[in-house]
């Protein structure tokens, strides 16, 4: 009986004890969620980068700031972070100019508006990256917990047998090790994706910050 056991993946999972199955379920959910967020972030970061590229080229082609702002407002739903920062700065600039305060204070409020928009966009981009980070660090431990539990079980079962052979322990250990496998399967993509996204978002944020400085200079020139 023991020798003829089916060691296929599904069989091992179905044969596992309840705690191990619970751990496997948690890990599978973690994996699905982390992959969901990986895909979401892929789309989001790719969109942000594309829009930023497009906006930067059109901005430095010397087009009028007013038309640029109008163009951005027409398709607000698909605007990138840099466009939104620019739009916030432009709106604040118009509002301050209509009141005609002193240029230094005006520029300062424009900078604040830009900073706020920038922070909002960065927060949007970095949202749920912490989920990927914690999945990457915690999933192996959860899997290990399931494995340890499963091995404990299989050894406890072994103690009840008079003649102990490897074929009695092997299925239990195999099914326990699957928990670690699933944990690693959830953790590795999450870790890779987390590092990738943080790097991408960091580069985007540097680009937007430099753009903010340049826009400040531009608006300052217009105020004089």
């Amino acid at each position: 009986m023991n020798v003829t056991t089916d060691l296929s993946f599904t069989h091992l999972i179905l044969q596992a004890s309840v705690p191990v199955q619970l751990v496997m379920l948690i890990l599978v959910l973690l994996s699905v969620m982390s992959w969901y967020w990986i895909f979401r972030k892929i789309f989001q970061v790719r969109h942000a980068r594309r829009r930023t590229d497009a906006f930067e080229t059109s901005f430095w082609q010397g087009s009028d700031l007013e038309t640029l702002a109008r163009m951005t407002e027409t398709r607000l739903q698909h605007a990138g972070p840099m466009e939104l920062v620019f739009l916030a700065a432009w709106r604040e600039f118009l509002r301050q100019r209509s009141r005609s305060l002193d240029p230094a204070a005006e520029l300062e409020s424009v900078r604040r508006a830009m900073r706020a928009a920038y922070q909002r966009e960065m927060d949007e981009l970095e949202a749920h990256l912490s989920f990927l980070a914690s999945t990457a660090s915690v999933a192996p431990y959860i899997g290990l917990l399931g494995t340890v539990w499963g091995i404990m079980n299989s050894f406890r079962g072994l103690a009840n047998m008079t003649s102990a052979t490897l074929s009695h322990v092997a299925p239990g250990i195999a099914e326990a090790l699957i928990a670690t496998a699933i944990g690693l399967f959830a953790a590795i993509p999450a870790a890779v994706a987390y590092n990738h996204f943080t790097h991408d978002i960091e580069r985007l944020s540097v680009r937007i910050e430099t753009f903010m400085e340049e826009l400040t200079n531009l608006l300052q020139r217009q105020l004089r």
Partner: peptide
Amino acid sequence: RSRQGKLLAMMLA
């Protein structure tokens, strides 16, 4: 934006 990305991401995952 990118609300439509939610469903796609879920399906892909």
